[in-house]
Amino acid sequence: MDISVNSATDIVSIQNLSFSRGDRKIFNNISLSIPRGKITAIMGPSGTGKTTLLKLIGGQIHPDQGSVIVDNHNVHKLKRTDLYTLRKRMGMLFQSGALLTDINVFDNVALPLREHTRLSDSMIRSLVLIKLQAVGLRGARDLMPNELSGGMARRVALARAIALDPMMIMYDEPFTGQDPISLGTIVELINDLNSALGLSSIIVSHDIEETVSIADYIYILSEGKIAGQGTPEQIKNLDSAWVQQFMNGDADGPVPFHYPADDYLKDLFES
């Protein structure tokens, strides 16, 4: 590692990262670090590549420039087998849950255990039930994924993500599209898991209220750059019109309400 990384305190460190899709620059030379044992949130409007960032951290896609260092390993320089070993220690919660639809809840949670360990069936059963109990769905073990509500599917996926006791979990939009009760459940689960298991969490989200309530540190992304960063308190008092518009959800501001267009009156009377 050429650049000095404070690996004792940072679990993920991103340096000078650039990534573009087609002609569009999604990240333009950004650097950020994610501390161990904390909940770090990455926020920004839709389409700023928050999910892309998680995929870059997980090594599913390659950056144009820059490096991503996870627990002292440069993710994109690892050999495939080493990358897979590293991934066993990273959990990821997808927006849709990404449960396998042809097997039931129990088998979904058991999948990583069966694939990666040589534990006996009874051992796997106990572990799965412990994980399901942690998310409150021990009773739903025999249901198929299509019988679960969105919130339940996300909780099962969370149980699956912690099945191998990872060192960190990445949450992709965990709050989107949830009713208030399951929203509260998820917020509490993330918080509890982080403190109880000593995990490091990365939350990617644009739901301000929930994110602010549990995050220790927040990065705000906009147009490929970091528009602001700090603790929730610091962010609230940040002197940036754009960040304030985002945090308060104002309709008009530095981000205009109207998509760029010709003069309204001229356009109306043109024909």
Binding site: M92, S96, P112
Partner: peptide, 16 residues
Amino acid sequence: LMKATEQLSGMEMMAI
């Protein structure tokens, strides 16, 4: 559909 519902991606992230 497995790709669209991120199941393939999810497996990759589980190192499967």
